[in-house]
């Protein structure tokens, strides 16, 4: 087991280095001149300005030199200065990431905690009313566009019924808890501030539900299909022939086998939520990475774009690593 983890970890590091190269190349070969888009028409018409700007950001150096500058800075934890915000990219990301992590994690947990049991029940009670309800919910979740769903739930639960709080992470008059992790739920618990905890939780309900909807559908359907497949395996018949109760057969014999594809999907879905909540964050005024990504892209803010892409790549690698490790825990055949 330790050997397996070390070898997976080694692979992840190699992948991360390759990712930096790809990120750098893509960011530097897309058409579009950051100098022109940053300086504005008036300043850009002045060649002196243009030249000085390029020299300042090393835009006049050859590609490889710039890559090594990038790597060197990276090794010092320096992702460069955002052209748009004029602040270190790392600080920007540190600022925005916790909001996204909190939202994505709550959304993911929501979809997993509901989706897996729902999928199992739908498979075990196939063609019963609960199976049909699960199918209907999944269909709605997967097929509703996020922006539409986000507006609808905001309009109904905040606008019309007024039972949910509006956009943002906290009420406008509330203060954020003392920053420890940046995750308001955890920070408020650490501070013992239960009012803030309740407020943060309430603000999470709508956006995380919107975020969970599509993932919930996927997880439910995958779990159902996977459980159905496992139910017809020979070892399940053997378990039944042993005289085990149906509950034990499902929990001990079917579920561990059925979860293997669900874990793969869950890992990808979680990474997707972390990286791709642009729409939801924008509509719910969520100060997260999604919004930062959108702004940086619009401004061709290359240091920021590269920083974000790197964070996303590393996120995927870490989640992949976790998925690999959970494979090994679920299935003894993985470690040979």
């Amino acid at each position: 087991m330790p050997r397996y983890i070390v070898s997976r970890l080694g692979l992840a590091v190699v992948m991360a280095i390759l990712a930096t190269l790809v990120i750098f190349l893509i960011a530097n070969t897309v058409p579009g001149d950051p100098a022109l888009s940053q300086l504005g028409d008036l300043a850009a018409s002045n060649p002196e300005f243009l030249k000085a700007f390029r020299a300042k950001w090393a835009l006049d150096e050859p590609l490889w030199t710039r890559y090594f500058i990038f790597l060197k800075e990276l090794a010092h934890g320096d992702l460069g200065i955002s052209i748009a915000s004029q602040r270190p990219v790392l600080d920007d990301i540190k600022n925005y990431a916790p909001a996204t992590i909190e939202l994505a994690t709550v959304g993911f947990l929501l979809s997993a905690i509901i989706g897996v049991p729902l999928g199992v029940i739908a498979a075990v009670r196939r063609d019963s009313w609960i199976d049909h309800v699960a199918r209907f919910l999944s269909l709605i979740g997967v097929s509703s566009p996020t922006f539409w769903l986000a507006f609808i739930v905001l309009a109904i639960f905040y606008g019309e019924l007024q039972i949910a709080p509006g956009p943002g992470r906290l009420d406008p008059i509330a203060f954020a808890p003392t920053n420890v992790t940046g995750l308001f739920l955890i920070d408020s618990i650490l501070a013992g501030d239960w009012d803030t905890f309740r407020d943060a939780l309430a603000h999470l309900i709508l956006p995380s539900t919107v975020l969970a909807a599509a993932t919930l559908g996927l997880i439910t359907r995958t779990t159902r299909a996977s459980v159905l497949e496992c139910m017809h395996q020979d070892y399940v018949r053997v378990a039944r022939a042993k005289g085990l109760t149906e509950g034990k057969i499902v929990m001990r014999h079917i579920l561990p086998n059925a979860l293997i594809p669900v874990v793969t999907l869950g890992g990808l879905a979680y990474a997707n939520l972390l990286a791709g909540a642009v729409m939801t964050e924008t509509i719910f005024s969520w100060p997260g990475l999604g919004r930062y990504t959108f702004r940086s892209a619009a401004a061709l803010d290359f240091p920021a774009i590269m920083g974000i892409t790197l964070v996303v790549a590393v996120t995927y690698l870490i989640i992949n690593l976790l998925v690999d490790i959970s494979y090994a825990l679920l299935d003894p055949r993985v470690i040979r």
């Binding site: 395996q233 020979d234 070892y235 018949r237 053997v238 378990a239 022939a241 042993k242 005289g243 085990l244 014999h253 561990p256 086998n257 679920l330 299935d331 003894p332 055949r333």
Partner: peptide, 18 residues
């Protein structure tokens, strides 16, 4: 499994792999 037990054809798939 108590009074009657059964052994199946394919031993490769009759045991739970996990």
């Amino acid at each position: 499994g108590g009074g009657i037990a059964m052994v199946f054809q394919d031993p490769m798939t009759s045991l739970n792999p996990v």
